Amino acid sequence: MKWMVKEVAELVGISVRTLHHYDKIGLLTPDEMTESGYRLYSAENLDTLQQILFFKELDFPLKEIKEMISSPSFDRQEALKLQRHMLLQRRERIDRLIATIDKTTKFEKGEKQMSNKEKFDGFDFSHNSYKEEARRKWGDEIVDQSTAAIENKSTSEQHEMGEKMTAIYKKLAMLKDTSPESVEAQVGINEWYDFLNQHTGHHYSLDAFKGLGQLYVDDERFMQNIDQFGNGLATFMRDAMKIYAEKSK
């Protein structure tokens, strides 16, 4: 099922103008567009919108929201868990502030004693640890560069980029049961290295490329995404990337 922009606006309670703005800045682009130019939103688009609004409710700027949900390592379930912690933390602080207002009201009526310290109970200007965790997990300079590089491409270029990436994964998946040091494996990994440097907006040094390969195995989400092309592909790519980086120095 697909929803038009007006239907989404009414469902969520936000303006059509807001949805147009999200589309314009690349934060939420509808999956389809009719021949008449009408936006059509999918169920997946609605899930993404929910994530955007949760982060927005928690005072994340749109730029940060965009880079986090665009991160290859972004995990919706993990984000929901983090957002819940942040909302509980906010509720606790609001409850304390309401209690401080009630105490202050009684104090000014002469009904209750109140220390100067109690007058400021609930105010908290320290950094939000959960917000910092979210930025650390999904927001970084490489993601900014990669997202910008992709958005600067036309729709056809983005489609071509996706096809190239999939083709490389499939080619490497066919080699995953061979030695990562073989000529064929190293040619395939060289193709992957060139692809990343040409299309992601970030130039990977050999050391960074080696580190990226290790991340494919250390981060379960990366491993799952890569291993969908073949069980064990992430480990094979890590080993092949390490060999490539060390031999290319």
Rank of each mutant, 00 (worst) to 15 (best):
M161L: 09
D121T: 13
F222P: 00
I189V: 14
L215Y: 04
T200N: 06
A173H: 05
R136M: 08
E160N: 12
Y193D: 01
Y169L: 12
Y130L: 11
K117P: 08
G110Y: 05
K164Y: 09
D124A: 01
E151I: 07
M114W: 08
S115V: 05
L172S: 10
V217Y: 00
E160R: 11
K210T: 03
E181H: 13
Q145L: 09
M174W: 11
G213L: 02
D218I: 02
E157R: 00
K153T: 02
E191I: 04
D207G: 10
Y216R: 09
D218K: 05
S129F: 03
R221I: 05
Q158R: 14
F123Q: 04
H202M: 07
A173T: 11
G110P: 00
Q158Y: 00
Q224L: 09
F195V: 05
D194F: 07
K153E: 08
Y169T: 04
E184H: 13
T178S: 07
Q158I: 01
L172N: 08
D219G: 01
Q113D: 14
M161S: 14
G201Y: 03
T166M: 12
D177G: 06
M161W: 03
E160I: 05
K164V: 01
D207C: 04
G122P: 03
E191G: 03
H199G: 03
G188W: 01
E163M: 12
G188R: 01
P180S: 10
Y193Q: 04
G188A: 15
H202W: 12
L206K: 14
F120H: 03
K171I: 05
S129V: 09
V187P: 13
F209Q: 06
T166C: 12
L212T: 04
Y130T: 15
A167T: 03
D140K: 10
G139R: 11
T155G: 11
N128D: 13
F123G: 04
S182M: 12
T147P: 05
K210H: 06
G122S: 02
H159F: 12
E220S: 12
Q145G: 02
S115K: 14
G139M: 08
G139I: 10
K119R: 14
G201T: 04
F120Q: 06
I142P: 01
T200V: 02
R136Q: 11
M223H: 07
G211T: 00
M161D: 13
R135Q: 08
T147G: 01
D219Q: 07
Q158K: 11
S126F: 08
M174K: 15
I142K: 15
T178Y: 07
